[in-house]
Nucleic acid binder design. Sequence first.
RNA 1: GGCGGCGUACCCAAGUGGCAAGGGAGCAGUCUGCAAAACUGCGAUUCAGCGGUUCGAGUCCGCUCGCCGCCUCCA
Length: 479
Amino acid sequence: MTLKIYNSLTRKKEEFIPNKPGEALIYVCGPTVYALSHIGHARSAVAFDVIYKYLKYRGFRVTYARNYTDVDDKIINRANEEGVSSDELALRYIKAFDEDMAALGVELPTHRPKATETIEKIIEVTKSLIGRGFAYAAGGDVFFSVRKFGEYGKLSGKNIDELEAGSRVDVNEAKNDPLDFALWKASKPGEPQWASPWGQGRPGWHIECSAMCMQWLGDTIDIHGGGKDLMFPHHENEIAQSEAATGRHPYVKYWMHNGFVNIEKEKMSKSLGNILNIRDALKENSAEAVRLFLLSSHYRSPIDYTTESLRENEAAVERFYKTIQRIGDEWPEVKGIDYCVQCNEDGFKPMIDAMDDDFNTAEVIGILFREITKANRIMDAAKSSGKKDGLIELSHALAFFQEASKFLGIFAKRPEDYFAEKRAHAGIPAEEVEKLIIERNAARKAKDFKKADEIRKELLEKGIILEDMPKGTVWTVKG
RNA sequence: GGCGGCGUACCCAAGUGGCAAGGGAGCAGUCUGCAAAACUGCGAUUCAGCGGUUCGAGUCCGCUCGCCGCCUCCA
């Protein structure tokens, strides 16, 4: 089967045929670094992280660029409010973003360009646009003439005349047409600025992505991604600029847009005050549960972040590791089996088919949990019959999990490590728990079940769950 | 007003022409000193509604209702 990608430009799933066979050039719009990144940034980053990993897994040589927009009105405003330089503010939030990404297990892209390091290219593209008659300088500003680009609106399905009719765009005196957008802006004193043929200034909002994309990947690329909201005007303008500047099209072969994250059924917005930062989400939940939550729905669907849904995903992660640990404990011989992928290629097919169908991670996760149930069933059957039937199936399940974790970026831990991490977050010191367990087991041995149950209850109130296993009592943290 | 999307069990969610995945919650059972975990069973004669195409539709087409996003900075 071939890889199919939903292309926002054609609104259809299309077979993925890169410009150069076996190679994939992918650019994703990164954050504008003026504040801590929120769960929406996490979704985009995780979605494209999986896409990046899967393309590599499928054997493509992938070059992946994700930018930092580090010069922008919002950065300037925020820096002024705080009385720091734009550079200092941007660097602070780039660092924070990188930390958040690392916490979420997001792999570093091949290139992570900054807008401020791409000024030369921005100026070059702007010059080219003026030279080709698609842009004009007015005062110290340079604007793109939207009407000169005949295909304007092809990505977002907008009609220029209707746009203007219902325009809420500020009418800027210097523009020839209200629809035109700035490629270059004259800087006010104290603002970041660079020398240009049009005087001291800074880039407009959309140009930096075109320039970074061209500089690091080329004039035409295979995949360009970002949040759904970027389709218009950002990506629409990018197409116009890039194709007009180079005369080459398509600028991008496949446009991909991820859906939004809502918080308790509401859109995240400043006015509602419900912006959920990644680091706050990670205080309440494990990174793995957050990642599982993000991958449990298709990347294009909107998802709803709720306390309840995160708790569910946390439980699912625990169920997963519990089963893996059980396999290790009860069937140590499984590890000795070298499960041969080649001779059982069909074994992975459902998972590959799901991913090939526009990166259907939700389907893969469904398959994974079916394997978990199957594995537990085999082990239960062996327990009651005394015969260990199903060695091959169990080794297959383990191979399956290992395989999926390569591109999902979850379920890759050793179960011991998972549970150790969890216990480290208990609200009570481990030694104390261990002490109470010893006390309780002494009581159990003496058949003093009243005392034993009291200790269980006491620990449960502190969020500690005890499980009496054949090998002894183990404890875990609730939730 | 224009463009786009969605509506599948108590909740989340996959499935886009051939017997309705999976997770969570619930109830009952096996196991357990009690629990927990795991397993087993139960739970949508049905996919917002109505019509149409088809041997066959959650899946395609049309209409209706409801929800949402974009059109302004936004992942």
